[in-house]
Amino acid sequence: MIFAIALAAAGFLGLGFVAQQHAAYREPLGRMLHPSLLLDLVRRPLWLGGLAAMLCGQILGAVALSGADVAKVEPLLATNLVFALVIGRIVCKEYLSWNEWLGGVLASGGVAMFLVLGRPHGELPVEPTSARWLAAGAVALVAVVLVRAGWGSSLQVKAMLLASAAGMLFGVQDALTRGLLLRLEHGLSAIAASWQPYALVIVAICGLLLAQSAFDAAPLRVSLPAATAAEPLTGIALGVVVFSERLRLSAGALAGEITGLAMMVGGIVILGRSPYLVKRANDAPDPET
């Protein structure tokens, strides 16, 4: 049941990403990384519909995280790229190429291999005051470095770096969500008195702004693969470091886990290399939608 819920979450996320990218790509490049980008997008019905689908995906993802370890759920959520590609192809009425099918099979097969061989288990609740949460802060710092590195780069590189930073923040968001769910037994007052719910809101908003900025810079095939790869890898790493989740570490299992993750990332990269149009700096925003 958890797997089905996580896959449903990935489907809604893929739908949301497609709708949001189509709306954000029409925005002028000068609004990247500026709050006015979000203020403009909230007036677009297509983007709001995408946001609603994304929220459904996030809620279903939270349900999945309430019943399973982060390292189990994150790889399943990563299949949102496959859903996004299929939905995008249906909307554009185009056929999937062999490379895109190969990318989808590798991404999905990598997820399955990691889950079967890794068998993530043994999660432990973590107090908000634990030093282990510094790992989440370190991830956020790396995201800032990626944003800064992409500032003077080409649009394609900037989109991939911004999307990678967004994916890392989404991974932090998933870890914070799981941490809050594990503390529900202490009551809402205890949760409200901690730093985690407020950090969750800030991380979610920053991740959303980075993702929309990446969508503004380049088409979905350029911007989404990096985010899709960064989120599960970040979530798995935080699951191990923060929540003490354990993976099977025998030689055969470890080799299979690494191979599965490599297949997942490789499939995402192949999907991201589909033909695309380059957005020019003088592209005008579409007043419609």
Rank of each mutant, 00 (worst) to 15 (best):
M1C: 05
F3P: 09
A6P: 10
L7K: 07
A10P: 06
A19V: 00
Q21I: 01
R26C: 08
E27I: 10
L33C: 05
P35F: 03
L39D: 06
P45G: 11
L48Y: 03
C56K: 01
I59D: 01
L60Q: 11
A64L: 11
V70I: 15
A71C: 04
A78D: 02
V86Q: 01
V86L: 15
G88P: 07
I90L: 15
L102H: 01
L106N: 08
S108R: 00
G110D: 11
A112R: 06
E123N: 02
V126S: 02
R132Q: 13
G137C: 12
G137A: 10
L141I: 13
R148V: 15
A149S: 14
A159H: 05
L161R: 07
A163D: 02
S164E: 06
S164Y: 01
T177N: 07
H186Q: 15
L200P: 01
V203Q: 07
I205L: 14
G207A: 15
L209F: 09
L210A: 09
A214F: 00
D216Q: 14
T228Y: 02
L233A: 05
G235N: 09
L238P: 10
V241N: 04
V241C: 04
R246C: 05
L249R: 11
S250Q: 11
A251P: 01
A253V: 10
V265I: 14
G267I: 09
V269D: 03
I270R: 12
R280G: 11
P285D: 08
P287M: 12
